Computed example of a mutant assay.
Amino acid sequence: MSSRWVPKWEIQKIEINNREESICYDTETKLYACPKCGPECLKGGIPRSSSYFFNKDDLINHFLAHKYLIWEKKKPKEIEEEEEEEEDEE
């Protein structure tokens, strides 16, 4: 048994907001991968960083959220200050 994931990508076409988009589906794990987060999947590779989903609906919602880039926005100042205090204590 191997401890390394070797995906077998299948490129599927879906329509999102009247546009045809290519998405990645791993036939081994039954996971969908976002090609915007990890475009390597479109070429059969293992993405360094990506988002994975168990169903198409969740992937579509994530795809639509890309225009907002919620996960890349800066953390609120209050949270940053708490983390700095914790580091100082160590």
Results as ranks from 00 to 15, higher is better:
Leu42Met: 11
Ser50His: 02
Tyr52Asp: 04
Tyr68Ala: 01
Leu64Pro: 10
Ile60Arg: 06
Asn61Cys: 04
Arg48Cys: 07
Arg19Gln: 15
Leu69Trp: 07
Glu80Gln: 03
Ile70Trp: 07
Thr27Gly: 07
Ile60Pro: 00
Trp9Gly: 08
Leu64Glu: 15
Cys24Leu: 11
Arg19Ala: 10
Ile23Ala: 14
Glu78Ala: 12
Ile14Leu: 11
Ile11Asn: 01
Arg48Met: 09
Glu20Met: 03
Glu83Asp: 01
Glu15Val: 12
Ile60Trp: 01
Lys13Phe: 01
Asn61Thr: 11
Ile60Leu: 01
Asn18His: 06
Asp58His: 15
Thr27Asn: 14
Lys56Phe: 12
Glu86Trp: 15
Val6Pro: 00
Glu80Ala: 00
Trp9Asp: 06
Lys36Tyr: 07
Lys67Asn: 13
Glu72Ala: 13
Leu59Ser: 02
Trp5Pro: 00
Ser51Lys: 06
Gly38Ser: 05
Asp57Phe: 11
Tyr52Cys: 02
Lys43His: 03
Ile16Gly: 05
Ala33Leu: 04
Ala33Gln: 03
Lys13Asn: 04
Leu69Ala: 12
Leu69Ile: 15
His66Cys: 08
Lys56Trp: 12
Lys30Ile: 10
Ala33Arg: 02
Arg48Leu: 14
Pro35Ala: 13
Ile16Thr: 11
Ala33Phe: 09
Lys77Arg: 10
Arg19His: 13
Glu85Ala: 14
Leu31Lys: 13
Asn17Ser: 13
Pro7Gly: 14
Glu85Gln: 15
Asn17Lys: 08
Leu64Lys: 14
Lys36Asn: 03
His62Phe: 05
Trp71Gln: 11
Ala33Glu: 02
Gly45Leu: 10
Leu42Thr: 06
Ile70Asp: 04
Thr27Met: 07
Leu59Phe: 06
Val6Phe: 09
Lys77Met: 00
Leu69Arg: 11
Glu90Thr: 06
Lys77Glu: 00
Cys41Leu: 08
Trp71Gly: 09
Glu82Pro: 00
Lys30Trp: 12
Ala65Pro: 02
Glu15Met: 08
Lys56Ile: 15
Asn55Met: 03
Leu42Arg: 08
Met1Arg: 13
Glu78Tyr: 04
Ile11Met: 11
Tyr68Asp: 05
Asn55Tyr: 05
Trp5Ala: 01
Ile79Gly: 01
Glu20Arg: 06
Lys56Asp: 11
Asp58Tyr: 13
Ile23Asp: 14
Glu20Cys: 08
Tyr52Leu: 09
Pro39Thr: 01
Cys24His: 07
Asp57Thr: 15
Ser3Leu: 13
Trp9Ile: 07
Phe54Val: 02
Tyr32Arg: 00
Pro35Asp: 14
Tyr68Phe: 03
Ser50Trp: 04
Cys41His: 02
Ala65Asp: 13
Lys75Met: 08
Ile70Cys: 06
Gln12Ala: 04
Lys67Cys: 05
Ser3Ala: 03
Tyr68Val: 01
Asn17Trp: 03
His62Cys: 05
Ser50Ile: 05
Cys37Val: 08
Asp88Ala: 13
Thr29Trp: 02
Asn61Lys: 12
Thr29Arg: 02
Tyr25Thr: 09
Leu59Arg: 00
Tyr52Val: 06
Thr29Gln: 08
Glu85Arg: 15
Phe53Trp: 03
Ile79Tyr: 00
Tyr52Gln: 07
Trp9Thr: 02
Ile79Met: 04
Glu86Gln: 14
Glu85Gly: 07
Lys43Val: 01
